[in-house]
Design a protein around this nucleic acid. Sequence first.
DNA 1: TTGTTAATGCTAATCATTCTCATTTGTAAT
DNA 2: ATTACAAATGAGAATGATTAGCATTAACAA
Lengths: 141, 141
Amino acid sequence: MNELIHLKSAGLKSTVPRLKVLSLFESGNDRHLSAEDVYKKLLASGDDVGLATVYRVLNQFEQAGLLVKHHFEGDKSVFELNQGEHHDHIVCLQCGRVEEFYDATIELRQKKAAAERGFAVHDHSLYIYANCIKPQCLYKS
Amino acid sequence: MNELIHLKSAGLKSTVPRLKVLSLFESGNDRHLSAEDVYKKLLASGDDVGLATVYRVLNQFEQAGLLVKHHFEGDKSVFELNQGEHHDHIVCLQCGRVEEFYDATIELRQKKAAAERGFAVHDHSLYIYANCIKPQCLYKS
DNA sequence: TTGTTAATGCTAATCATTCTCATTTGTAAT
DNA sequence: ATTACAAATGAGAATGATTAGCATTAACAA
């Protein structure tokens, strides 16, 4: 199984909670999950992990580069599988739909803006908060 | 005094705590302040306001459009005077220096990216986390 | 199979922020 | 000026997300 390899090569011992969390993300049903989301989903599938462990595992995975953490507006943070290519996010304020996008020009100009001001870019986050135009966006997530 | 006008036209009753908070921001010594920062600065100048009041006032000012709230990496949020023109931020991860910038192309392409995907932009936030190149960045804020 | 070390699962603690509510203050009308 | 009343304040409790502490359990190498 795929997950095992990931854990090993990340220098993480392969434990039951870690495998479950990882395969949750790899199942791909929801790309963006908060710790609470993960916890609930695991409980729902009968898997019995502690919330503290979920937090720990998510942070370890982030450190190991398996997941990326995002802070959408305000409160809780969400994680997504790290698939190599950086991208930014558009979040619908009504239904919570999250769309990913990448714009090379934006990336470039960011680097430039930083360099001009005496900074070396380490990281950056761009979130667009918006409203769906489509009619199917009438329900709250 | 200037502050009084601002409060009035924002539909806010002019009270002692509100005037103090507002003039703190208008003094311009620090553009970006957290609730905690404001609280401490007021205490330091012998002004005796409650932390809860600081939070309340900051949020009211944000609602009223006098201040803008930002969520830099992670935890606490910071406020800055709203001077009309939107801008993005570069934050030094070492010393905490915050630099503001505006790039019309970036703005434009954001709008475009959103529109193409069926979103109407409501708001957006772009933070660049970086390291100062300059040598004077050797101290923590 | 065993032993050691790291990982887990509770629960309590922490941190930022909000809420409650009794007391005080601004203000518009007297 | 005074009064009257709603709105604002302050202190501390409450909340929500996240982390820490610690006794118990599970990986994995020998």
